[in-house]
């Protein structure tokens, strides 16, 4: 735990923190803006909960932006602290095992992602109620959000992100140049859109699609579940295990990170 605290000190005054805050604030604010500007079209029908529409719009936006941009950028920025400052050689000459260093980085990033959700939930609820207060016709203050569904979506979205997270964790260790992992993420995003537009069944195996598949399950692929997890979330966990193993082996076998990393 002591060493994890050093990872948080290192991240101070970096864009990583702003990314967590900005990421959590952006979509609720954007959806609030849409609700306020297009409110005439969004007045709920009799018996309808306006929060469902507010949630759907927010989560679809999140699914679109979250994995390719937030997770990838956060991971890149986090590793860039060491790459940019050339501090791998300092870390590797400290009396700490490489596996400890590896797991500190992994857990710190997972905490950052969880922090994103912890911030997102109250901000999203506050935005919804604020919109309801400004435009009473939307009836957001007369209803309550589905908290169970909100927490469940956060959990499944987190699980769906693990695959891309592990891939980019590995890429960020392997490549000093941030452009490479970001380029791969952009390419992944393009392929995902193409698969989605083409209603391709292969989308189940494509990790960059998983977050959107969680918030808006594609109707052309199987809705089969294993326990509480849809198939793509199972694949996300498999990707996580495979790529975490890969990055762990690479990290622990390398002796001079800064000189061998591209």
């Amino acid at each position: 735990m002591l060493s994890i605290s050093t990872e948080f000190i290192k991240s101070k005054k970096t864009f990583a923190w702003w990314l967590v805050i900005f990421g959590a604030v952006f979509m609720p604010l954007f959806v609030s803006f849409v609700f306020l500007s297009k409110w005439e079209h969004l007045v709920p029908q009799q018996g309808q909960n306006p929060w469902d529409e507010f949630a759907e719009m927010s989560w679809k936006g999140m699914g679109f932006l979250y994995t390719p941009f937030f997770v990838v950028l956060l991971t890149c920025l986090f590793f860039n602290i060491e790459h940019k400052n050339n501090t791998w050689k300092l870390i590797f000459t400290l009396p700490v095992s490489k596996s400890t260093i590896y797991f500190n980085k992994l857990f710190t990033l997972l905490i950052f992602i969880l922090l994103f959700y912890i911030l997102y939930i109250p901000i999203w609820i506050s935005c919804g109620y604020a919109v309801g207060l400004i435009k009473p016709a939307l009836q957001l203050t007369d209803h309550s959000p589905d908290y169970i569904s909100l927490l469940s979506l956060c959990f499944h979205s987190f699980i769906a992100s693990l695959g891309v997270f592990a891939i980019h964790f590995w890429l960020s260790i392997r490549f000093k140049n941030m452009i490479i992992p970001i380029g791969i993420a952009v390419l992944g995003g393009i392929i995902w859109v193409a698969l989605h537009q083409g209603r391709a069944g292969e989308i189940t195996y494509f990790p960059y699609a998983y977050n959107y598949s969680t918030v808006s399950p594609p109707d052309w692929v199987t809705s089969k579940k294993i326990g509480i997890f849809p198939l793509h979330e199972i694949f996300s966990m498999i990707y996580f295990i495979v790529f975490s193993t890969l990055s762990y082996r690479y990290f622990c076998s390398t002796t001079a990170p800064s000189s061998t990393f591209i």
Binding site: K10, K12, T14, I81, N85, N86, T87, W88, T93
Partner: peptide, 10 residues
């Protein structure tokens, strides 16, 4: 080692 490795933003 060589140039000191420091977290320059801190």
């Amino acid at each position: 080692i060589e140039q000191p490795s420091l977290y320059e933003h801190l």
